[in-house]
């Protein structure tokens, strides 16, 4: 023992005031922890990125699609890749907490379960976005697509779709973390729930990835994406305590 730490009832530790600010601080601390940990090991990032690139390359070589064919399949192909590559990242989200019983320490801490869940979701969203942006660049090169022409709108749509993937995937990642077959269970549970949002994201991403404007009916798909994000975020936050403590 060296330097004593001043503690005791007479010198109570200063704690940050509870409220929205402390909720946000805890959320960001959890997200930053997950990102720092992942950037050091790159376990999920490398696997997810490699999977995305390989699928896009194989598909390109196997079918050698024309511009017309690419226009028809761009949205579906991209979101198929995003969804499967995303599962690799989402599976790691809570599995990362298993060694050394770290999840117990997080759940025992005063961080509200919704903040813990939101931090995890935010970390997953950032990782997924990185993989997806890299995949879009690969898609642009190998499919000769002008994906940067409407970059703002495309990134916006991808961000909305990815938030839905993160929200649902992180919740199910928490629920399946102790299952022996969690790698299998997570996609089986997540994809059926995501069908509406995948449909919307495919419809919106297809033309944007080819550098073309959105059709008139795009507004309805966009509202579906936003509505799904809002509803499932609220639902997941409400269920987070039960998912983490049981």
């Amino acid at each position: 023992m060296t330097a004593p730490v001043q503690t005791g009832t007479g010198t109570r530790l200063r704690r940050a005031a509870a409220g929205p600010a402390s909720f946000l601080r805890a959320t960001l601390a959890i997200a930053a922890k997950d990102l720092r940990s992942e950037f050091r090991t790159k376990e999920a990032l490398n696997a997810s990125l490699a999977f995305s690139v390989v699928i896009l390359l194989l598909f390109s070589f196997a079918f050698d699609p024309t511009v017309e064919q690419t226009r028809a399949l761009a949205g579906g192909l991209l979101w198929l890749v995003f969804a499967f590559a995303g599962a690799l990242i989402l599976n790691r989200s809570f599995a990362r907490e298993l060694p050394n019983d770290c999840l117990d320490a997080l759940v025992a801490s005063p961080v509200p379960a919704p903040a813990l869940y939101l931090g995890k979701t935010l970390g997953n969203w950032v990782l997924l976005m990185l993989v997806e942006l890299a995949s879009l660049a690969v898609f642009g090169i190998f499919y000769n697509a002008a994906w940067t022409r409407r970059l703002g709108a495309l990134v916006g749509v991808v961000a909305l779709g990815t938030w839905a993937l993160s929200v649902v995937g992180t919740l199910f990642s928490a629920l399946t973390v102790n299952l022996r077959l969690r790698e299998l269970m997570l996609p089986l549970l997540v994809y059926p729930v995501l069908i509406p949002v995948l449909l919307g994201a495919i419809q919106l991403s297809g033309p944007l990835a080819m550098g073309e404007p959105l059709a008139e009916e795009a507004g309805a798909w966009l509202r579906l994406l936003v509505g799904f994000d809002v509803i499932f975020t609220a639902l997941a936050l409400a269920l987070s305590e039960s998912a983490l403590v049981g």
């Binding site: 922890k33 940990s37 050091r40 090991t41 060694p99 050394n100 019983d101 770290c102 117990d104 320490a105």
Partner: peptide, 12 residues
């Protein structure tokens, strides 16, 4: 709380 595991992140 001090449980059976050390509850520390190996990569931090």
């Amino acid at each position: 709380v001090l449980g059976h595991g050390v509850a520390l992140y190996d990569d931090l």
